[in-house]
Amino acid sequence: MSVRDLAGTQIRFSDLLRMLVLDVESQEVGRVHDARFVKDGPVQGAFGPGYRLQGLVVGTGSFGARLGFDRASVKGPWPLKAMFRRLHANAKFVDWSQIDSIDGERIRLNVPAASLRPVEPLPS
């Protein structure tokens, strides 16, 4: 389903996790490890501006990603951080505007994998 056709629909966050991501040439980029949100969306009652999806964290390895050791902003034992950061060195950030369609278990992009930027650390 094209992202344009998703208007008005609901998605479960868990459905996005571990989805396979393919670039515009059907080359495998990796699987969704996480999703980055920015608090500048429509107002959600007492919470104020809601969390709007900025993009997806996509990588090839998954071990350690759930604990965040692949992201520089997460604190932890340095040997584990170093090991997991090396394992996830090729993790990419997929901006929402770079997604063409979401079908079942797959996300197709409208750009080549080479144009994706690395994942920036969360603000500390």
Partner: peptide
């Protein structure tokens, strides 16, 4: 246990609209 994301009617990126909790939410994960 999970999050409900809603894509705005006018399109654009989804927004977190609800927290899902309990066994009904955890099962899918």
């Amino acid at each position: 246990d999970d999050l409900e994301l809603t894509v705005p009617e006018e399109g654009g990126p989804p927004v977190i609209t609800a927290i899902l909790a309990g066994p009904g939410a955890l099962a899918r994960r």
